[in-house]
Design a protein around this nucleic acid. Structure first.
Lengths: 200, 200
DNA sequence: CCATAGTTTGAATCTCAGTTCAAAGAATCC
DNA sequence: GGATTCTTTGAACTGAGATTCAAACTATGG
């Protein structure tokens, strides 16, 4: 039994490569040869590891979700002050611009949920985990006496995620009326209103 | 100079047909023969009227935007009471389910804005018009003494649209945690909070 | 170092869908 | 009704990209 190095590493490389290809050309423009070129292998190799292209795309999606959440948590979990943490969280959920890497990938792949059960499940779990992230911050803020919520933490958290998604959608569609700063202001303004916290 | 009936009518029929095809199979799965079949003509005829398929898709997009806005306005403009009008508006901006016709088309086509200037412009104008619709209702409510806004009418209107878009996104991606009723409740709860109007 | 089994390639093949086009069909004009 | 021009069709053509596959390649074990 012989194997070059590690199929795991090659698979990871392909997932990375496919992610870049999708971010660049879009899901509709995804070509097997582009993935291969991006990973510096032949088209045949891509098929060797992923006879079903859909499987590769799904793993790209999974990886994007994990990386995105890891990034958000890394940026917020260590912040003790609920007010500061919420401020950071609000910024990290919104794309910088329409070329923002992971965000772009997620928006691009979100469209698959409509016709694919696995992708739908994945997106539902992403949603739940984002809601949980906000719920935690809100509960901390309530406990600390910083926030006085106008609704349940879960309700507010869901709204925050929906606002991010909605504004994010417009950032990606290059709506000149919506940019990162404006969207962040809007999310924070909402947070301020609903928590009664002027420091936000 | 002879013409069968009216190229206008044939074009409209093709736009309708393409719209149905996109809603059914998705933009990625759009095939010229499907459009032709849906319109009960040959593939050649489709090309005769639209040598550039992109032009047809763009007209489908335009038509969807107009139909959607017309529907929203028709349902709300005649309602005199600002509170009732806002309630109806909140419902009409959200898809019933993931198969809701015009909404589905709009979500499907929204993805084009990223890579196509015309589509981006179209979506930006849709956004502006939806914001305007809400702004009007809000101003009416303020004038009537029903609403006491926590922010400018435009800011609140933008949030309402973003909430709709965000929640709508999840309805389309078949997120079991988000359905029409839950999303509508959330939007109305937000409206209640930010307008201080308990009747909402 | 040879045998073995996993890995990689690139050329050949297959497939699907877009595109072309010549001929047939239909409406209108005179 | 014949001429003209627009319309429609379907069969042939073309091209892009996916898929196959036999041969070459590479670790590793013994």
């Amino acid at each position: 039994m012989a194997r070059t190095k590690n199929q795991g590493a090659r698979r990871e490389a392909l997932i990375e490569a496919a992610g870049r290809a999708i971010a660049e050309r879009g899901l509709a423009g995804l070509r097997i040869k582009d993935i291969a070129a991006e990973a510096e292998v032949s088209a045949g190799s891509v098929l060797y590891y992923y006879p079903e292209l859909g499987d590769l795309v799904f793993e790209v999606h999974q990886a994007a979700v994990e990386r995105y959440l890891a990034h958000r948590h890394a940026g917020t979990d260590t912040i003790a002050d609920p007010v500061a943490r919420l401020r950071v969280a609000a910024g990290s959920g919104l794309p910088r611009d329409s070329d923002d890497g992971v965000h772009k990938l997620l928006y691009e792949l979100h469209g698959l949920a409509d016709r694919s059960r696995p992708h739908a499940t994945l997106m539902a779990s992403l949603y739940a985990r984002e809601v949980a992230l906000y719920t935690t911050v809100l509960e901390l803020g309530v406990a600390a006496g910083d926030f006085t919520l106008a609704a349940t933490p879960a309700d507010v958290a869901r709204d925050l995620v929906a606002l991010e998604d909605g504004y994010g959608l417009h950032i990606f569609s290059r709506n000149p009326a919506v940019d990162h700063a404006a969207a962040r202001d809007a999310v924070l303004r909402y947070a301020r209103t609903v928590t009664g916290c002027g420091r936000l």
